[in-house]
Design a protein around this nucleic acid. Structure first.
Lengths: 138, 138
DNA sequence: CTAAAACCTGACGCTGACGTCAGAGGCAAA
DNA sequence: TTTGCCTCTGACGTCAGCGTCAGGTTTTAG
């Protein structure tokens, strides 16, 4: 398949694919006239690349790892990198989960009708704040 | 406290704090000589900002939301933004979890001693791959 | 055969969250 | 007072992952 097809199927831009090749992440054969040709497996490859980018890995790191993926072997360095990135992703997930919780708190706080103004704006006989005012209210 | 202290306590750079102020995310009073002064609560504020940046929100979005956080109120727009960002974070966590699984697969694949070459390189009488060769192997 | 669409190789542009440098002033200790 | 660190305001630099334009070839549809 040609670059436009791959771009469509992997949902990325043509420019991105050329960039991936430039970075050594994605190989292609060339037609006689010089056009890039890809196999079916390139689609998965591109989505893997996208995933890794999405997880915050750099082109360089991905370029270092992919050969090991292809060869199905690991070097001590690749194992270290893989472990480190896995940990990074773990921490990232933890952070995001925390941030989501913070956002939830904000959503609650801001959408809950004004905390205690309710009592004030409530119709009926005026009430003093609980704890103050006339002692032994009960 | 002064900017250097806040930077140390929030574990960010001085430059970042000035940038936050420039973006309208972080307020400060000034000393007579013009130095920035912060209260204790600024530490939390900065970590919140960092969290939101970490979750992929832009300065602009954060600047839009923080006033609502401070005022404890929400507008229809802020609610929409909050909900949208929350969803984004959800998706991000899902993606990261998937990517982590992919990484785990890679770690397994590459660190598992070469799939079937073992049998080949194993000393002793050559064995055919399981499933093929002489039937009823056991 | 021809026009449109797709592809090619440079190469510059963009964006956001800062880093960094310059030049000039504060401020606590000895 | 001098030393040394902290802070100030500009303002330019950086980096990565592409976007985009230019100018030219190739492929495809009619």
């Amino acid at each position: 398949m040609r670059i436009g097809d791959l771009a469509a199927r992997a949902a990325v831009s043509v420019r991105a694919l050329r960039y991936y090749e430039e970075q050594g992440l994605l190989a292609s054969t060339r037609s006689v006239s010089g056009q890039r040709l890809y196999t079916e497996t390139a689609v998965e490859r591109v989505t893997l690349i996208q995933s890794l980018y999405g997880a915050g890995l750099s082109s360089r790191t991905i370029a270092d790892l992919l050969p090991c993926v292809d060869a199905q072997v690991s070097t001590p360095e690749s194992r270290a990198v893989l472990a480190a990135e896995r940990e990074r992703i773990d921490r990232q997930i933890a952070e995001l989960t925390l941030t989501r919780a913070k956002l939830d708190a904000i959503i609650e706080q801001t959408s809950r009708p004004h905390p205690r103004c309710d009592y004030v704006t409530e119709p009926g006989p005026a009430r003093t704040a609980p704890g103050s005012g006339s002692p032994a209210g009960r």
